[in-house]
Design a protein around this nucleic acid. Structure first.
Lengths: 204, 204
DNA sequence: CGTACTTTTGAATCGCATCAAATCTGGTGG
DNA sequence: CCACCAGATTTGATGCGATTCAAAAGTACG
């Protein structure tokens, strides 16, 4: 990671109180770097401005299971009061990531009700997003999961694939082969189009 | 629902500030009642003391998808700042449920930092639980999902089935037939036992 | 130019959904 | 108390769809 001092991302700046913005450290991470690992003691909370980060855990059989895939937003919110990370965070595309010291966040939450309120709002949104993901994973067919994903996560049926379909397959809980075939089928049926780095839903 | 004035559940009493406890209304709900429906304006937040409640949404094909299944704890936390419920809440076993007026909660959060902190802790736990559920739903085999469930939700490998395996099947995102067969297989293999209203993991 | 990774296609297999039907269960009213 | 009903449980047969394994072709990057 290479530390730099670019401007703080607007969304993060609006969430944090003024005096905390100065404590942020923004860095560039390369593909393949590890943001943190399960078992480590959390000291920073991370905000992804650009790029792509995967939260993963190893199943008992040793395969990696994708808990979350973030291209933008806070990672590890729930580590605020935790002694240990419960998953690994892997950078899978060159990313700009801002770290905020957790103890500073905790102190600010205790003394700044307006910040607390914004933080609760952020957690509420996260709970809703996770419920949507559970709903998606409850669908049995790859096609249903993909369309549900595009409906809920896409902007006007448009969704950018920064690092290819493979990482999306992980988030949808299917093999990449199945997802490639599904996308190809939907293209043939004229339901989906695949323009340069984007997935675009056509009808509906 | 029949209103009554039993003692407030300890966990809820510890979460809420003293002046809010008086505003709680505890009622008995029968199997089949609807706690709330998607689209309604949220006015109460509900805490399940006993029984069983399902949060469901209808997929585009019209089948009900289980978002959450709660036997104990707060339902609809995320509705705090929402104008509408985004799912249905169905009581599937006779339950004791406490309602707390949402506007009172919002007011208390704005003025009571200690309560805010407890509320954030509750949301953090919810985020973690949901991440575990996503992890579980990412497993492909019924057996893996069931064992993961018992590991993460059970107490010492023991899990009470208040209203049978069928509602559990919904939460695991599988058909009840598949779950019955899986339980029966695991019993034959000596990995699981099914004692009066309980699922009990034997080894490990 | 070579290496690593993604994308793509193929074929075989397996597990679960689905449909069907029988049995069991708790609770209801007669 | 018993007949009856709705729902839960159980078992069976079938087909589909995804996983799995394999391998080839495309692509980015040093």
């Amino acid at each position: 990671m290479a530390a730099s001092f670019t401007q703080l991302h607007q969304e993060l700046a609006e969430l944090l109180p003024a005096d905390l913005r100065a404590a942020c450290v923004t860095s560039r991470y390369a593909k393949g770097e590890q943001l943190f690992s399960a078992g480590q003691k959390p000291t920073y909370m991370f905000f992804i401005s650009s790029g792509e980060v995967l939260l993963e855990r190893l199943s008992r059989q040793g395969e990696a299971i994708v808990l979350q895939r973030t291209r933008h937003g806070i990672v590890s919110e729930a580590s605020l009061q935790s002694a240990r990370y419960h998953c690994d965070a892997k950078v899978i595309a060159s990313s700009e990531i801002t770290g905020v010291p957790i103890h500073r966040i905790a102190a600010a939450l205790a003394s700044d009700p307006a910040f607390s309120s914004r933080w609760i709002g952020m957690l509420n949104r996260e709970v809703k997003r996770l419920r949507l993901q559970c709903e998606r994973l409850s669908l049995h067919k790859v096609q249903d999961r993909l369309l549900h994903f595009l409906e809920t996560e896409g902007q006007q049926g448009k969704y950018p694939l920064s690092s290819g379909l493979k990482s999306l397959a992980g988030e949808l809980g299917v093999t990449h082969e199945a997802l490639y075939r599904c996308v190809s089928d939907l293209e043939k049926k004229g339901i989906l189009r695949r323009g340069d780095g984007y997935l675009i839903t056509l009808s509906r």
